[in-house]
Design a protein around this nucleic acid. Sequence first.
DNA 1: ATATTCTCAACCAATCTTGTTGACAATATG
DNA 2: CATATTGTCAACAAGATTGGTTGAGAATAT
Lengths: 174, 174
Amino acid sequence: MRERSHANLRLVRRRAMRHGSGVLSQKTRYAIRAMQHLADHYGQRIVPLSEIAEAQKIPPKFLTVILSELTRFGIVESQRGKDGGYRLSIPPIDITYGDLIRVMRGSLALVPCASRFAHEKCKNCLEEHDCRTRALMLQVRDATAELLDGVRLSDPIQPVGDEDIGAAAPQAKA
Amino acid sequence: MRERSHANLRLVRRRAMRHGSGVLSQKTRYAIRAMQHLADHYGQRIVPLSEIAEAQKIPPKFLTVILSELTRFGIVESQRGKDGGYRLSIPPIDITYGDLIRVMRGSLALVPCASRFAHEKCKNCLEEHDCRTRALMLQVRDATAELLDGVRLSDPIQPVGDEDIGAAAPQAKA
DNA sequence: ATATTCTCAACCAATCTTGTTGACAATATG
DNA sequence: CATATTGTCAACAAGATTGGTTGAGAATAT
């Protein structure tokens, strides 16, 4: 391993906190929470939107849009009328977090041309330059998919202490 | 491994090609290409913006913005006037793709609370629900970082055939 | 019939993305 | 010094995306 002691690059990490948006949209995160809530009641009862909204602190009208989308997709079933609501149409052990993210945002890949399923040639991929990174992007996609598809909606909470930020890599670099 | 033969979920992968945007913005991809171009001429000469723009097919005025940003950041040095241009201020072997992405988009993490350096508590992280995924998000972040920081601007092209989509064996190729 | 619950298209403000314009600052050359 | 060249920077702008809301239905249980 090389030293890399340049002040500028050491600063990258600290300074680079400009827009803390993250990759997953709020909608996707809401969807994950809603699905977790449904998973917790799978096989027990149908859960009305209002309950999910309240428990998961999701704006109810927005949740309407999200759940309709998931329902249209077929991963959730709905029942109308009195005592209606939603339930998973698939056992939670058969739904991975990777599936949820793919459903909501279309792909796990960093760049379109590195998506395994939603693959499309980047219009702006210079063959010899941008695609210089394609092997790398594919590796990232695959590693991401392997992790995200390794955890299922039925899996228990994996607690993370506040001290554990960034410690999750066994061989973390100094 | 579980079976997971549900038609819906098998469909996820095919159907989920809705908005092929990807995680990395066009600006970030331009920045990577520009940096690759500078890396290719590191130690040789100063490269004017117009050359980068033409070679990498980046709108020159937009490249202006990008290179100024990189220069302000200190990762690139500029020279004005006749025969001016840009050069890396750090040897390309000391710049990883992870660095570039962090510089341009602030973090590698899927969600803000899973960023190691640009960490911030998600305002919308229900302690017991959203954070149910935090351990997972941290693993993804770390795996991503390890891969992206393992390849440097000085590294040679890693060709990927069209057949190799998703195959991504790190050191398999001749 | 009525109350309850999901459905869905349309709309909206704010922000982000992808650029462009144009005035200005620095520098090399003659 | 004059001038051409090249980077700097703030402002603008069209279009897309995000994060929602509104409101008019449609289905269903009682």
